[in-house]
Computed example of a mutant assay.
Amino acid sequence: MAGEAEALNRALADCAAGREAGVVAILASEGRQLLGVARRILGRDDLAEEALQDAMVLIWRRAGQFRREAGSARGWIFAVLRNRCLNILRDGRRLTMMDPADLAAVQEARQGIVPVEGWEILAGQSKLRDCLGGLDGQSRQAILLAHVAGFSHGEIAARQDMPLGTIKSLIRRGLVALKECLS
C-alpha cells in the first residue's frame, strides 16, 4: 500500500514537471477505478470517458497544487475526477441530448447507487470500510451519497428530508472522523 501511495506521489510530481510518464502511471494504476467511479456517478459510458479525460487534463495542469500534507495523492486524484463528474451533472447540457425516457432511467439508476443496507460492498475489505463502519448511519449515508453517487448537498438534503445545514454538518464531521481514522 505504501509503495502504491509513493508511486502516485511520484506520478503527480512527474505531471507537475511536465513529464508524460506521470499521466501514464496514474492511468496504469488507477484508470479502471477512476472510470468505474465516473460511470457510477454519471450513469453513461460516454460521459464517464469524457469526465476521465477532462480530469486527467486537469490533473496534468494542476499537479503542482497537490500537497502531501493535505491528504493522499489517490484522494486528490479521485477528488478531481469527482468534481469533474459533478460539473458535468450540474451543467446538464450533455444530459439534455438524451431521450427523456433515457434521462429518466439514468436519474432513477443514480438513486439506487448507494444502498442503505449492505453499503459495506462499496468499500470492499479495507481500512476505509472499517472506518466507514465506525461512523453513525446518517453521516455514513450522506458521505456515500455525496462521494459515491455524486449527489449535491441540496439533493441529499431533499432525499433525506433534512435541512441543508444539517447535511453539510454531517458530511463535514464524518469526513473529519474518516480522516482521523485513516491516519
Score class of each variant (00 low, 15 high):
70 A>W: 01
70 A>K: 15
70 A>P: 06
70 A>Q: 15
71 G>T: 01
71 G>Y: 00
71 G>W: 02
71 G>E: 07
71 G>C: 03
72 S>R: 05
72 S>C: 12
72 S>A: 11
73 A>W: 00
75 G>S: 09
76 W>E: 01
76 W>C: 08
79 A>D: 13
80 V>D: 06
80 V>K: 11
80 V>A: 09
81 L>C: 09
82 R>P: 14
82 R>C: 06
83 N>L: 11
83 N>E: 15
84 R>V: 12
84 R>K: 14
84 R>C: 07
85 C>T: 07
85 C>V: 11
86 L>M: 07
86 L>Q: 14
87 N>M: 06
87 N>D: 15
89 L>E: 04
89 L>Q: 09
89 L>C: 02
91 D>C: 01
91 D>T: 03
91 D>S: 08
91 D>V: 00
93 R>M: 06
95 L>T: 11
95 L>N: 09
95 L>S: 09
96 T>A: 05
97 M>R: 13
97 M>S: 08
97 M>A: 10
98 M>L: 15
99 D>G: 03
99 D>W: 02
99 D>I: 04
100 P>K: 03
101 A>M: 09
101 A>H: 08
101 A>Y: 04
103 L>P: 10
103 L>A: 03
103 L>R: 14
104 A>S: 15
104 A>W: 10
106 V>P: 12
106 V>T: 05
106 V>S: 01
109 A>D: 08
109 A>P: 15
110 R>D: 06
110 R>W: 07
110 R>C: 09
110 R>Y: 03
111 Q>V: 10
112 G>Q: 13
113 I>N: 09
114 V>S: 08
115 P>Y: 02
115 P>L: 00
